[in-house]
Design a protein around this nucleic acid. Structure first.
Length: 230
DNA sequence: GCGACAG
DNA sequence: ATCTTGTCGC
C-alpha cells in the first residue's frame, strides 16, 4: 500500500508534520463501513526497548464472537523519531504497519492504543493508521490529549459521555469498569461516532481495557512473560 | 509569555 | 513509554 506519503522521514520539521496531519485528517471517514457481523478484530499497541532505541509493536487477532486469540505478532524496528505530543503517530506507525502485515490476515476492525480523532488536528494514531491501511479502526486511550467532558459520568459499567473540543464532539469518555478512570474512545476511520463506545464495550470483559487492546498491551510491554521466561 | 501535553 | 515495592481498595 501507499504509506510513504503518510510517513515522511523525521527531519525535525514539526510544522510540516502538522500540515500533513491536516491533509490526512480530511481522508478520515466517520461512517460505519465494516462487515456485519464482525468476523475478526485486532488490537494494537507499542512498547520500547533499549531505552527507546527499538520500537516494538504487538498485534493480536481475535475471533469477534468467541474472543479467542487467532494469531499474535510482534514487530521490532529501530526508533526513528522522539515522542512529541500530538505527533505520536509518526513515531509509532511504522512498527504498527509491520505488525499488521505479519498477521495471517487483516481484521475487520482494529482497536489502537491511543486516540482516533480526539486529537488537536483530528488525526490521532488510530485515525492515521486507518487512513494509511484503509481499515476500520477505533482509538482507545487512557488519558485525554485535547477536549473535555461537560457532563458527569456515571460510575456504572458501560456508561459514557461526550468528549468535546469547543462545540464539536471528538469522542467519548467510557466507563468500561466501575471504580476505574474512564477510557477515552474515539473513531479512527470508517466508524461512526455513536458506534465507537458500543463496539469498544462489546470486547470489554472484567478489565478496564477491551480485550484486543489489553492483550496487545501485555505483549508490547512484555507483561505476558511468566516467571522463568525472558 | 505560560501551561498542557496520547504513548 | 519506561524505571520499580509495597500498598490501598473493591
Amino acid at each position: 500500500m501507499d504509506t510513504a506519503p503518510s510517513l515522511p522521514d523525521w527531519a525535525g520539521d514539526t510544522a510540516a508534520l502538522r500540515n500533513l496531519q491536516r491533509q490526512l485528517a480530511q481522508q478520515v471517514e466517520l461512517r460505519d463501513d465494516f462487515p456485519k457481523p464482525l468476523r475478526t478484530v485486532a488490537g494494537f499497541d507499542v512498547g520500547f526497548e533499549d531505552g527507546g532505541a527499538t520500537t516494538r509493536a504487538a498485534a493480536v487477532l481475535l475471533d469477534a464472537d468467541t474472543r479467542e486469540v487467532i494469531d499474535q505478532q510482534v514487530a521490532r524496528l529501530p526508533t526513528r523519531m522522539p515522542y512529541i505530543p500530538g505527533l505520536l503517530s509518526f513515531r509509532e506507525l511504522p512498527a504498527l504497519l509491520e505488525a499488521l502485515a505479519m498477521l495471517e490476515h487483516a481484521p475487520d476492525l482494529a482497536f489502537i492504543d491511543g486516540h482516533g480523532i480526539a486529537h488537536p488536528r483530528r488525526l490521532g494514531i488510530a485515525a492515521h493508521f486507518g487512513v494509511a491501511t484503509n481499515l476500520p479502526c477505533i482509538g482507545v486511550a487512557k488519558k485525554i490529549l485535547v477536549g473535555e467532558a461537560r457532563m458527569a459520568l456515571h460510575d456504572m459499567r458501560g456508561a459514557f459521555t461526550p468528549l468535546r473540543d469547543g462545540r464539536e464532539q471528538i469522542g467519548w469518555l467510557l466507563r468500561s469498569k466501575p471504580g476505574c478512570l474512564p477510557l477515552i474512545v474515539s473513531p479512527g476511520h470508517k466508524v461512526a461516532m455513536p458506534s465507537a463506545p458500543e463496539l469498544a464495550m462489546r470486547f470489554v470483559t472484567t478489565y478496564r481495557l477491551p480485550e484486543p487492546t489489553r492483550l496487545a498491551d501485555r505483549i508490547a510491554s512484555r507483561r505476558d512473560r511468566k516467571r522463568g521466561e525472558r
